[in-house]
Structure formats: C-alpha cells, structure tokens
Design a protein around this nucleic acid. Structure first.
Lengths: 194, 194
DNA sequence: GACATAAGATGATGTATATCATCCTATACA
DNA sequence: TGTATAGGATGATATACATCATCTTATGTC
C-alpha cells in the first residue's frame, strides 16, 4: 500500500464529516460531489476511491450525524438525575443556537421530510441509526416499562424535530422565538416532572 | 382575448393543483416542469404563460396546499364542541391514511425541512399561509387568551408534523404504527381535555 | 367569413452534475 | 535507491433541466 492506510482513512473521514454538515445544511441535493471535494482541496474524481455513490455517502453521513447529534445533546450532564439530564437535552434541542446551526444539528430536524423519498439503502441506514439513538436516550424518559419509555421518546423527539423544522421555516423573528419557547416549556412540563 | 379567460384560468388551476401534489409527493426538486406539463397533456413551453418561474409555482402551490389541508382536516365536524372538533383533527392528521398519502396531505409534514432553504419569496408565502391556517384553527385549542391558544397551536401542529414526517421516514411497519399511535394518544390527552 | 391575437407547441441554449476511464505521482517496500 | 502500487487528478460522457425565442393554430371580434 502506498500512502499509509492511515492517510486514506483520514481522507475518508474528512469527506464524511464535511458531507454530513453539508447534507444537513443544504439538503440531499444541495451540493455536488465536485463542490464538496473542492472544499477539501481534493478533486471530484478521487471521491469514488472512498464511496461508491453519493447515495452511499448520504447514508453514512446520516448515520454519523445522528451519532454526533446524540453526543452533543448528552455530553456533560452524566452526573445528574434522569429528569435533569432530559431537561438539558430539551433545552439544548430547542435553543436558538441549535436553531441557527442546522448543519451541526440534529439531522431529524434538518432532513426529516426528505428521507421518505430516499432510496431503500439510505432509509435502512436511517432506521438503524434511529434505533441506536433511541436505545441510548430512552432510559432518560419517564415510564415504567421500556415500551412506555420508547413511546415517550417518539413523542418527544418527533415533536421537537417538528418544532425546530417549523421554526427554521418561519422567517419572522418573533414567531420563531415564540414557537421555540412554547415548545420548550411544554415538553419540560410534560416529560421532566417525575 | 382568444381562448376564453375561463379557459386560461382553468389551465392555470390545473397546473397549480397538479404541482401542489407533486411538490408534496416528490419535494421541491423532485420533478421537472416538463414532467408536470406532460402529465397535464401540455408542453413545457406553455408553462411560462402562467407562471414566471418554478419558484413562483412552488410558492403558490405551498399556499394552496395549506388551504387544502386545512379544509380536509376540518370539514364535516362543524357542529361539535371545540374539544371534539380538535380530536377529529388530531385523529385525521395522525391517521394511516394521511401517513400513506403525502401528496394529498399537510405540506408541513411533507416539506418542512426543505422550506428553510427556499428563496425569500417562497418563505414569505409560507409565512402568510401558516398565519392564515393558524388563525382559522387557533380557536379550537384550549387556552384563555388568544396568545395562549396560539402557543398551543404551535406545539400541537409542529409536533404532529414532526411525528408524521418521522413516521414516513421510518421503513419499519411496526415502528411507524407505534409512533403514530403514541402521538395520537398523547396529543388528545394533552389538548382535548377541558 | 377574414383576421388579429394570445394559448400553447417546438426547439434551442446554457448550465449543472453524477459517474467513469485513464493518467500522474508520492511513497512503502525490497 | 529503484520500482510497483494505490490515492488522487484530469478530462470525458451522458443526462437532466430551467428558461427563452419563436412558431402554430384555435377562436373571439368585426
């Protein structure tokens, strides 16, 4: 092997990282492979040494974005009680900061309505990533049985993703602020009480 | 004027109607003007007698889809009490039928994550349509002041849109059913009690 | 019934973009 | 130190698509 394995893996990682931000920021068709590679000081042709297609890239980027988002929401609050940890998650999710940075945020909010139209492979990757995500967060939610906590997970996360999406769709500053604030209060009230 | 006014308006209406379904079903870039016109037994060139650009078409189609969706959710339950009407809305919104037919359903669920990336004109049209939509439904929500009801409207509708989006993104049948069911129960419980 | 006019058709233009075949060259290894 | 090899570069191909200029033709008006 010429160029160390290391080097190739690093390049691959850089492509994936940049792609995962761009997909979230610009949608699944918002940029070209050439654009992406150019920003990494590489050329479009080299891309196919690392990925078979843009579709495969999307699938991997989506999964990686889910992981990244999960990490961002949970870091630093490990010590607290579940309800308090969940509160931190809700506050971070519905923060102005998250609102303003789709490219670094939750892919659910950034891409949810595009995913149903993606090819099977992408959706399978999404399913898998969502499951992992849920398994790691579910324990923080109220509910006696696992099933019950999962139900709450679904309601909370699909709800927050919808709220963030809508808040980004609305141009009016006031409406956006009101929307985020209302949802934050509501979800904390509903899920952080026990 | 050759061809009656009537005739031209009717053609325009047909284009808009078909477009509004296609945008919801296939996304803002999922079809071409030529495709669209072809299905209407027209040719691509004629399109520009009716709309200045695809962007303008999207803006109008979005607004029209919001109206249509509002009508579908509210028809036939006028006589009931507000809480009962709202319950019907929630049940319809989170039904398997709505899940299975994005093209005829709520544009929020079908397009939310694409709208933030649209040009100003589209977003302005969306803002306006959302406001109208809210003004017509807000009165069914619990809350003493208008402001309070609007807050509830935001939480409920952004939440339901997120739920439906996610349910469509998930491929697994069971998960989808569980998701829709959990959310339905939750929102009825939360908003249809008083 | 002739004709002016506008809805709609046709064809062209320019641009964007995924993907592939092939070339170049830095470097791991002997 | 030479050489084979694979990561990356270059250029080509094919396709898709929005938009526009121009042509056709059906029809309202006289």
């Amino acid at each position: 092997m010429r160029y160390s394995q290391e080097h190739k893996l690093e390049t691959r990682r850089r492509i994936l990282y940049e792609a995962s931000r761009r997909f979230r920021g610009q949608g699944s068709e918002g940029f070209s492979i050439a654009d992406l590679m150019h920003d990494l000081k590489l050329t479009h042709g080299g891309f196919y040494r690392h990925f078979n297609s843009k579709e495969q890239l999307f699938a991997e980027a989506l999964a990686s974005a889910m992981q990244e988002s999960h990490a961002k929401l949970t870091t630093g609050s490990d010590a607290k009680a579940p309800a308090a940890q969940l509160r931190v998650i809700i506050e971070r999710y519905l923060s102005p900061r998250h609102w303003a940075n789709p490219a670094e945020g939750c892919p659910l909010a950034a891409l949810a309505s595009e995913i149903p139209r993606q090819p099977r492979a992408v959706r399978a990757a999404f399913d898998q990533a969502l499951k992992t995500y849920m398994d790691e967060i579910e324990r923080l939610l109220p509910g006696k049985t696992r099933r019950e906590r999962q139900r709450n997970f679904f309601v909370l996360f699909s709800g927050m993703a919808g709220t963030l999406s809508l808040a980004r769709a609305v141009s009016e500053e006031q409406t956006r602020a009101r929307l985020l604030h209302a949802a934050k209060e509501f979800y904390i009230q509903a899920f952080c009480q026990d």
